[in-house]
Simulated scan of single mutants.
Amino acid sequence: MIKINDKRRLEKYILNHRINEIFDNDIKCFMELFYFKRNEYICKEGEDVPYLFFFVEGKVKIYITMSNGKSLLICFYDDFRIIGDMEMMSVKPATNNVQAIQDTYCIGISMETARKYLLNDVKFLRFMCGSLGDKLDKCSNNCSINLLYPLENRLASYILATGQKLNCNGKSVIKINENLKEISELLGTSYRHLIRTFNILIEKGGIIKNNGGYEVADEEILKKLSADLYK
């Protein structure tokens, strides 16, 4: 996490997402801008969350680690979201892992300041209730995908949601650079079954194996397979 001392960029995010409009009072003076590089954690399960974050650019995945050490995907964020709202209310450590899958920017307000000024801010609390309802809807959608779709469909959806878009010799390429064992855990399957499913997607022309990794060969094939996308 790197603090970015760029007032113009901070102001741009505040205006673009109309952040000041969700508070009864102007608390801009307490806002700070932070940068998280790809794969960095914004918060980790079991650790204190030092800031109430407003996610303003990038993409993150949210997942939970079970008592048996395995992980399960909950959802993704790629639009304006609050991170740390439950921790602000409950004064407890983070219950989920929030990890950047692209370079990400968040506006932060220290938890101490957030609890002091926002717990009695009716306008903000109403906004937060709507935000929590939307998060619940996302979780419900993704749980349904995990339960009702074969791995082939879920993997296609996951690749589209997390693939890293790169420019290779003027051509846009989507690469899958994550650890395959971690992907198998997040999707609730075995490593062997995941590899078999990658091979099925190769046979169907959706992806190719390249330099020891995978990249998307035909995005449309994956979109057709993914049906209901992870959100």
Results as ranks from 00 to 15, higher is better:
2 I>L: 07
5 N>A: 09
5 N>M: 08
8 R>D: 13
13 Y>D: 00
19 I>K: 09
25 N>R: 04
26 D>C: 00
30 F>Y: 13
31 M>I: 02
33 L>R: 15
34 F>S: 04
34 F>Q: 10
35 Y>G: 12
36 F>C: 03
38 R>G: 05
38 R>Q: 06
43 C>M: 02
43 C>P: 00
44 K>P: 00
44 K>M: 00
46 G>N: 00
48 D>R: 09
52 L>Y: 03
53 F>I: 01
56 V>F: 02
59 K>H: 09
61 K>V: 14
63 Y>D: 02
64 I>H: 15
67 S>C: 10
69 G>F: 14
70 K>E: 13
70 K>A: 06
73 L>N: 05
74 I>M: 10
77 Y>P: 09
78 D>Y: 11
82 I>T: 03
85 D>K: 01
87 E>L: 06
88 M>L: 12
90 S>N: 06
95 T>V: 04
97 N>F: 01
99 Q>S: 12
100 A>M: 10
101 I>T: 10
102 Q>M: 05
104 T>V: 03
104 T>C: 01
106 C>S: 07
108 G>R: 02
111 M>D: 11
112 E>L: 11
113 T>D: 00
114 A>D: 10
115 R>A: 04
116 K>H: 08
117 Y>W: 14
118 L>F: 07
123 K>H: 05
124 F>Q: 06
128 M>W: 07
129 C>R: 05
130 G>S: 09
135 K>L: 00
135 K>T: 02
136 L>V: 07
136 L>I: 09
139 C>W: 10
140 S>M: 15
147 L>S: 04
148 L>A: 03
148 L>S: 08
150 P>Q: 02
150 P>T: 03
150 P>G: 01
152 E>R: 14
153 N>A: 15
154 R>Y: 02
154 R>F: 01
155 L>C: 14
156 A>G: 07
160 L>F: 10
161 A>R: 08
162 T>H: 05
162 T>D: 11
163 G>V: 13
163 G>Y: 09
165 K>I: 09
165 K>T: 07
172 S>D: 03
172 S>T: 03
173 V>S: 09
174 I>H: 02
178 E>L: 15
180 L>T: 13
180 L>M: 10
181 K>I: 07
183 I>E: 14
185 E>I: 04
186 L>P: 15
188 G>H: 03
188 G>V: 06
195 I>P: 06
200 I>A: 07
200 I>V: 11
201 L>Y: 15
201 L>I: 12
203 E>C: 02
208 I>Q: 12
209 K>Q: 11
209 K>P: 12
212 G>L: 10
213 G>H: 12
214 Y>S: 08
215 E>K: 11
216 V>R: 14
217 A>P: 00
218 D>Y: 02
218 D>N: 14
220 E>G: 13
221 I>M: 01
221 I>R: 03
222 L>P: 14
223 K>W: 11
224 K>C: 03
225 L>A: 11
226 S>P: 12
227 A>S: 12
230 Y>K: 04
231 K>A: 08
231 K>W: 09
231 K>L: 10
